[in-house]
Amino acid sequence: MTEPLLAVENLCVDFATRSGPVRVLNDVSFTLAPGETLGIVGESGCGKSMTSLAVMGLVPRPNGRIASGRILFRGEDLVRAPARRMRQIRGAAISMIFQEPMTSLNPIFTVGRQIAEAIRLHEDVSKAEVRNRVVDVLGRVGIPDPARRADEYPHQLSGGMRQRVMIAMALVCRPQILIADEPTTALDVTVQAQILDLILRLQQEENTAVILISHDMGVISQVSDRVMVMYAGRAIEKGPCRDVVEASAHPYTRGLIACIPDIDRTERMAESDRLPTIPGIVPDLRALGETCAFAPRCALADAACEAWKVAPIRLDDAHVAACRKAARGIVA
């Protein structure tokens, strides 16, 4: 592996709530190499978005704060970087696209103007040059007739087109890292396929590193090089996509994959067969300690699990799982 572009180390994020402090990210570590796609997957509320916001320096203030850990971007710790430096990095070296393309665009400005803003924030270029780049980037994200579309307002575009505009805005300054937080969740599957295809194509052209966040294991398995599975604020399994999906070491990862009604699998099911399920619901983050948060729902849990202080167990040099039984080969 080449030297990591981004290394997140032992990141903890706390939130102050009416019922006391809550740890929404707990000891999260991962790395990202240039040109690589890291998929982050998990159920809603597990901390996927918070992870990306932390990297962007956008943990909501004043209630949220990074309690400990480092976020090293090419060796520079972004946790300690001053606000001015973060503004320089955001949108230029690291940029982000969000789930909801409608609310992330300003309805009262044309899309061309909003992309131009993104350029002018970071670069000192002439008006004509800006315009050229706006039209060029709209064309590159597959918007037909980009010169005309640049002068349209967000509401004049379809959902898929708006998401393309968001991608154009994120890519116009040629970032080294693109964080896409559920970029296709609000879109239909046929449009989702187009958008994912677009992100990967642009990634290859520029060798951009991508963090793709999704709750959909299908999307993650189709596009990621490496995968990180999150549960209740922790990264519970990390590794190459194929290992995590096909040789999952954590019972939660296996449950998450098994409970998807996948058409290839359900085709072979009998009428009386049922989907495998993970019993119960995700825990209240307030009630968590240092032990395995999945234990109450885990079919393999025993008394020792209840007492075990969670730690990443290394299965091989790339595959890690936070399950006591993963190390001993008890887990198939």
């Binding site: 239909d188 990967l200 299908g218 189709q222 096909e246 058409i263």
Partner: peptide, 24 residues
């Protein structure tokens, strides 16, 4: 519609080879 479904399959990445519909 069927070919646009992202299957849980890290090896056979059919989504990227799918017959793709253009537009919305």
């Amino acid at each position: 519609l069927l070919s646009a479904i992202p299957r849980v399959d890290p090896v056979n990445r059919s989504l990227m080879a799918a017959t793709r519909l253009s537009g919305d």
